[in-house]
Design a protein around this nucleic acid. Structure first.
Lengths: 194, 194
DNA sequence: TCATTTCCTTACTTGTAAGTAAGTATAGAG
DNA sequence: CTCTATACTTACTTACAAGTAAGGAAATGA
């Protein structure tokens, strides 16, 4: 292979692996599943990511950054809450449609005990970050009168995130209708007429 | 080995495998992980369950039956709704405490595409059954004035089940507080003061 | 008591996953 | 032009997972 300007093999590996992780879980894919479609050899993957553990850790970091950057439009702190909520719904639907039935955290929750301490922490930070953002959205939404709900905003955030997480799993078994039902229910619970 | 009155090896295999499935997912355990702690040989597991696919299918059936029988107290159709809801919460907490962080459906959702058609259907029936029961609980609860919520009872049932499913995953990464927060939120959303 | 069935064991085969060691081609620095 | 780093390949090792074939011991039934 020629050494094309700033080789993108590393990024291609990440993209392919991320897709595989979300579709099949950590123990559901091998280095071969990554290398073959990219037309490279097994050992090339090991060159970039010496062990699978390090690969997975990189995938979490990647997801974390993607959520921060790629979704910056609707994740802006301080803006109106309703479009941010709808942005999250759209983002989730889009993920499912392009073959990412569960999020990284969902995919890894099954294999959680196998992960190293550092990887567990990375996963935890990822979730915490998302949760902090969403708690804010709910808080400002309630203050501005966009949403109505009782109780603690953080609890509500946890429960809604759990709901979406669960709905994605559900959708895989039951079809995407489960996802739409859930979004509809979240809106109803927040006192939004759609 | 002596042929002890109605050998319970088969049941021991199911128990061990179910625990492993819930803790590590379908691709996270091997026949060796089952046989070793039981003090039997690998091939003994194959004697009872010729292939892993058949083993997993049996585990779904087992879970389905366990949910029907073992939880018959609180799953009784027609009784008051509130204790049935609390029964579900207690059952879920107990499962998590005895090392079953996710339910069978949650564990298998990652590996769903690997499953045979028949196994997928079995999993679907299992979920449908649970959902039917829970929809009834919500309906009668609302009729009797025990619960307050807007919208379709089935949608609500789907969304709450998804929430519990997701919360179990969450709890694994975040600790069991996530589970309690979620239960509290469900009560709040149903207009129950705790 | 002899044959059969049940429930296992011993001893294998085959496949694949993770990882490594050593070598090769290319680009760019000096 | 040579040296070095980068980005790979070829060719391997080790380990383990899934599954099978053949055989053996105990209970059961005729």
């Amino acid at each position: 292979m020629t050494m094309n300007a700033i080789s993108n093999t590393r990024q291609q590996i990440i993209d392919t692996a991320l897709q595989l992780l979300m579709q099949r879980g950590m123990n559901g894919f091998s280095y071969r599943d990554i290398s073959e479609p990219l037309g490279i050899k097994n050992a090339a993957v090991h060159y970039h990511f010496p062990s699978k553990a390090k690969l997975v850790k990189s995938l979490i970091r990647e997801s974390h950054q993607a959520l921060r950057k790629g979704t910056a439009e609707f994740m802006a702190y301080g803006g109106p809450a309703r479009p941010q909520l709808e942005g999250l719904f759209e983002f989730t639907l889009k993920q499912c449609e392009c073959g990412r039935p569960v999020c990284v955290a969902g995919a890894l929750s099954v294999d959680f005990e196998e992960l190293s301490k550092g990887t567990k922490e990375a996963l935890n930070r990822f979730m915490m970050d998302t949760l902090d953002w969403f708690t804010r959205v709910l808080e400002t939404g309630r203050e501005q009168g966009e949403f109505q709900f009782n109780g603690n905003a953080r609890n509500k955030a946890i429960s809604i995130m759990a709901m979406i997480q669960g709905a994605r799993q559900f959708a895989r078994i039951h079809g995407h209708k489960a996802l739409e039902c859930t979004f509809e229910q979240i809106r109803t619970d927040l006192g939004i007429e759609s």
